[in-house]
Design a protein around this nucleic acid. Sequence first.
RNA 1: GCCUCUGUAGCUCAGUUGGUAGAGCAAUGGACUGAAAAUCCAUGUGUCAGCGGUUCAACUCCGCUUGGAGGCA
Length: 302
Amino acid sequence: MNNYSVIILGPTASGKTALSLELASFGGEIISVDSRQVYKYMDIGTAKPSKEELLKVPHHLISIVEPDEKFTAGLFKRESEKLINALYQKNKIPFLVGGTGLYFNSILYGLSSIPVVPNEIRSFVDRKIELRGLERVYNILEKIDSTYANKIHKNDKQRISRAIEVFYFTKKPFSSFFNERPNNNFQFIKIGINMERELLYKRVDLRVDQMIKDGLIDETENLLKMGYKKDSPGMKTIGYSEIVDYLENRTSKDEAIELIKRNTRHYAKRQVTWFKKIDGIYWFNSDEHEKIKKIINEKIFF
RNA sequence: GCCUCUGUAGCUCAGUUGGUAGAGCAAUGGACUGAAAAUCCAUGUGUCAGCGGUUCAACUCCGCUUGGAGGCA
């Protein structure tokens, strides 16, 4: 047996959780690759595995930060690599299960070493964009880092802001960090789950209805009571922000539910776009558990 | 039964004085280096309800048929 990790990826509502639990038979542990399940108190809306399921197989990187704390791709990479090494020590197979494209990318292809930019600089940049307008700030980016400016669109506020903040903090163009992309030497078996788009969307709709029945509204209300605001990092999650709008009378309940469904469909589509680019994925339908077990077995033990 | 309004993209609707159509949403494709469930980009042919008429030319004007909404008896 070699040092392999198994990646299980797929769009939201494709059935990853059910599959990952079955894989417990391999004697592995699950590392969640999900930028939303890291938040505490957000269980229903992020479709975390149930308490029983979490007990059945050891899970990592679930419910580890407060909803007003920031979690990042860099933290994910660091923590997941630590965990993978620890599991290898214990002779357990790491199963990286989730749907966050950037996180998978960070661990598959690495991340450039860019210093962590202090919050003050980010708020300074945000204020600057508000004051001067996005266009002016994009023009600044064209001057200090034309390579990156040409790569992104002039409306892409988040990327413009990121490139500017890195420049202000390091005095070097954002793209100058890209030359080096340090990475681990882990070997991954990549399993992808997908299905016909129409069916996936149907499953998304059903799951959103189920979340409402399971108490997503109460869960959101509770988060508000705990003092987490609409703009807390955790609350910027599909499901919660729409329910906050309903609770604060900006939309009706039915509108909020429809919006959650629509936004989740959009999200699922974006996930698929991301996964298509990762090469070497073995693709399966969500019900082909036996086939998946077979291929993992072959790869790991022979 | 009579009168008025109405039928245009999957949905909601624009369409100026006749020159065979265009927005939003949806949908589809894509980008992605520590906010990523985020942020952003691209893509609009549809018997203009049907049939007939007027006209060089009809989504546009006229008639009939048909579906819908409202009003009056």
